[in-house]
Simulated scan of single mutants.
Amino acid sequence: MVLLLAGSPAIAETADGALLAGACQGCHGVSGEGGHGIPSIRQMHDRQQFVALMRAFRANERPNTVMGRISRGYTDAEIAALAAHFAKPQ
């Protein structure tokens, strides 16, 4: 258990987009495809748009259901890593 706890800060520091994207799967789907009223984030090629959307959610500047609360859990580095991850072809 100590190893897991010791490794946790390294995960946050490296901001691994693929690892972080796992949290998005519950709503946006395994590949970010969305559906059932949830928008697709798969192949969102404009990284700046992704970052701007996440920051707007985090600042409560964009109406949403849960994304405001979810986005507050991410640092700017983690949001950038997610943007890079979802910009890649799946």
Rank of each mutant, 00 (worst) to 15 (best):
G26V: 13
A84N: 09
E33R: 07
R72Q: 13
H28G: 08
G22E: 13
A81P: 08
G35M: 02
M1L: 06
G17S: 02
N64K: 09
R58Q: 14
A87T: 01
E33H: 03
A52N: 15
V51W: 02
I38W: 00
H28W: 10
R42Q: 15
F57T: 14
V66A: 12
C24F: 13
E78P: 07
G26L: 15
R55A: 15
A83V: 08
A84G: 06
A6C: 07
M67L: 14
G35H: 03
R58K: 07
I70W: 09
S31C: 02
E78T: 02
A80R: 04
R69F: 13
Y74V: 13
A59M: 15
V2T: 01
E61I: 01
Q25I: 08
H85G: 08
D46T: 04
M44D: 07
V51I: 15
S40E: 03
G22T: 12
L4G: 10
I11C: 10
R55N: 15
D16L: 09
G7W: 10
E13W: 12
M54Y: 13
A10Y: 12
A81V: 07
L82Y: 06
V51C: 01
S40L: 00
A77H: 08
P63R: 13
L19D: 11
N60H: 14
M44F: 15
D16W: 04
N60F: 14
Q49C: 00
N64V: 10
H85D: 07
F50G: 01
D76N: 12
G68V: 00
A12N: 03
H36T: 08
E78C: 03
A18M: 04
R58M: 03
V30H: 07
L82G: 03
Q49L: 07
G29L: 04
E33A: 11
P9S: 05
G34C: 04
A56G: 04
T14R: 11
G7T: 02
L20I: 03
P9I: 10
S71T: 10
A81R: 06
L53P: 00
H28F: 09
I79K: 04
G22C: 12
E13R: 01
P89A: 13
P9D: 09
I70S: 05
K88N: 08
D76C: 12
P39R: 03
M67Q: 13
R55T: 15
